[in-house]
Amino acid sequence: MASSPSALDKEQIFGMAEKEMEYRVELFNKMTQTCFKKCVDNRYKESELNMGENSCIDRCVSKYWHVTNLIGQLLGSGRPPM
């Protein structure tokens, strides 16, 4: 009974993995939405991203990543807080 993980322990491990994945998906989606709002002209005069938009997107992702790490550090670790 002590050596192999119980059904409940397993539930917990899978639950943790699921939450962590949900978190990463949500991070990606929020970053995508936010950088779209900051970088892409919402009058949609064409269907291509122009050069200015493209370089803005690259920098926006990079800065978003830095802010994620910075706040992770403030909260006590490089990783998201548990």
Binding site: E22, L27, K30, Y64, T68, I71, P80, P81, M82
Partner: peptide, 10 residues
């Protein structure tokens, strides 16, 4: 807490 972290960053 993971959601809070995400919305704080945003």
């Amino acid at each position: 807490s993971l959601r809070m972290y995400n919305s704080l960053v945003e």
